[in-house]
């Protein structure tokens, strides 16, 4: 049943009927498995991958990757302070890493000023945050396995043996 995850991860719009055909399982079984994945939080939600570069937006936005150095707290480690950070709407992603800093954030703001004021006023001022380094994102090429380009035309000749 785990194969359902592999299938949905590639194309979340396949219906349980179609999935049931590809796996040789009854529609009921597939539906039940998906329900269970959803209930257990294995499947969190279904989203769409959008190539923002092609969307003319009235309100543009910028993103920055921010390294954050943190002093862990007794009894909580990094989790508590991480939560105080990732709950901000500006924080799009938040990862705990090994190495020279602790958290890596992806932060989104209306413009450069919005991001920098978030960093200087909200983030850097938190207790336990020891330092930050901000990298503004210039261009996205690939994200979570998807190359951010329109799929290329099939280059094969239409008929071959």
């Amino acid at each position: 049943m785990k194969e359902i995850l592999e299938i949905l991860e590639k194309d979340a719009r396949l219906t349980p009927e179609e999935i049931s055909k590809t796996l040789k399982k009854s529609v009921g079984t597939v539906k039940k498995a998906i329900k269970k994945f959803e209930k257990d939080g294995v499947i969190l939600k279904y989203k769409t991958i959008i190539n923002r570069e092609l969307v003319r937006e009235e309100t543009s936005s910028v993103r920055a990757l921010i390294e954050v150095k943190i002093a862990p707290q007794r009894g909580y480690g990094f989790d508590h302070i991480a939560e105080r950070i990732y709950r901000f709407q500006e924080v799009v992603s938040c990862y705990l890493l090994s190495g020279t800093y602790d958290l890596l954030l992806v932060v989104e703001g209306r413009d450069i000023h919005a991001v920098s004021s978030f960093v200087s006023e909200r983030l850097a001022t938190l207790d336990n945050v020891r330092g930050t380094v901000t990298h503004f994102l210039l261009k996205k090429y690939k994200e979570d396995g998807d190359i951010l380009k329109r799929a290329e035309r099939d280059k094969r000749i239409a008929i071959s043996f």
């Binding site: 099939d154 094969r156 000749i157 239409a158 008929i159 071959s160 043996f161």
Partner: peptide, 20 residues
């Protein structure tokens, strides 16, 4: 028949003998 296929636009070809 091949010429027909190759000359036609917007065909979904299930006639290809190689990986996609």
């Amino acid at each position: 028949f091949f010429e027909l296929v190759i000359g036609m636009k917007d065909v979904i070809s299930l006639g290809v003998g190689e990986p996609d």
